[in-house]
Design a binder for these strands. Structure first.
Length: 325
DNA sequence: AACGCGACCTGCGAGC
DNA sequence: TGCTCGCAGGTCGCGT
């Protein structure tokens, strides 16, 4: 579930099912899904078994579960007096292009692409297993350490552990929905880049959470072409495209994310329906909706850019000339 | 230092 | 029917 809204749908879904529960056993059915855990499957399982899940935190498209290393170590809900030393490790997840995190009862047959199974301590009315399913294996799980954040703010969206972030997510910028996202610092860095606007929007170190779909949607809403040079971009234009990204991702979140097929589902296996609201992505040769409202005939164009497809309206998102508008 | 490309994977639909 | 090709929501590492 690759972009921010889809990952956030998973995070929200997961919180109520796993927070406070203990991981009792781990099955790795395909070691490729934990290849970023360099010490291998046995070490991976050993780190998780007996650990208690404190929360589910997201930064950009990275998701992690801070862990209390023993089951009886107090968690965030146990009151200030019982607060433990901060958690030091976390179970990290990235969904890549096709990863899913699913809560399943034990009697549900294994999915075709089931890669990792976590069994959780029993809890009333809750599924016993957290499953990582991944067709293309671009995603994966691994255990990592928590390190201080660069700006001293919260690590990501989620409630604990405030100033700490999973190490492999520490180079990822805040996303436009993060309350600590700073437009000023984004814009300052944007102007120093010598690249095109879409490439910058997809650079997770500059602003995170935006992928190919929402980049095209944000550019369409802001009436900007993907090749607009970043070093001459006016503040008002940068603000417009960032606001557009925030809006479109919030709308998508409210719709449960974008699903074209069963690959993109929430933790209960349900699809989102934002695909019906897309204005640019996937609309090759279809009439631009905004131009149609203005009585202008204009067909959306698909072009190869960065080895992937980009969709633009040739009328309301004209290609820049000479590095200027 | 930062940009931009290829690699990492499986499966599906289109076209022959 | 079955082959090949192009395509798919992402990230990382290398060469320039």
């Amino acid at each position: 579930m690759p972009e921010l809204p889809e990952v956030e749908v998973v995070r929200r879904g997961l919180v109520s099912w796993v927070r406070g529960r203990t991981i009792t056993s781990v099955d790795v059915m395909d070691p490729r899904s934990i290849r970023r855990h360099l010490l291998g499957a046995e070490d991976f399982a050993g780190n998780l078994e007996g650990a208690r899940v404190l929360d589910v935190v997201r930064r950009g498209k990275f998701l992690w579960l801070p862990l209390a290393e023993t089951a009886d170590e107090p968690g965030p809900g146990d009151g200030p007096a019982a607060r433990p030393s901060r958690p030091r490790v976390a179970l990290m997840a990235h969904l890549g292009m096709s990863g899913q995190l699913l809560m399943q009862d034990s009697d549900v047959p294994d999915e075709k692409h089931l890669k990792v199974r976590l069994r959780l301590s029993p809890a009333d009315g809750m599924p016993e297993q957290l499953r990582f399913v991944d067709q293309r294996i671009f995603g994966g799980l691994f255990v990592t350490t928590l390190v201080p954040t660069a700006d001293g703010g919260p690590g990501g969206l989620g409630e604990t552990p405030a100033p700490f972030i999973a190490e492999e997510a520490s180079h990822i910028a805040r996303d436009p929905l993060d309350p600590h996202f700073s437009f000023d610092s984004f814009y300052r860095r944007l102007r120093t880049r010598k690249t095109g606007l879409k490439r910058a929007l997809l650079d997770q170190g500059l602003v995170s959470g935006i992928g190919n779909i929402y980049a095209d949607e944000a550019l369409w809403r802001a009436r900007l072409h993907y090749a607009r040079p970043t070093d001459t971009l006016r503040r008002a234009d940068a603000l417009r495209v960032l606001d557009a990204a925030r809006e479109v991702m919030l709308d998508a979140l409210a719709a449960g994310g974008t699903s074209f097929d069963s690959l993109y589902v929430n933790v209960n296996g349900a699809s989102g329906y934002f695909d019906r609201s897309l204005n640019a992505y996937g609309r090759e040769n279809q009439q631009c909706k905004r131009c149609a409202d203005a009585g202008i005939v204009s067909l959306m164009k698909r072009e190869q850019f960065m080895n992937r497809s980009s969709y633009t309206c040739p009328v309301c998102q004209p290609r820049p000339r000479n590095g200027r508008w």
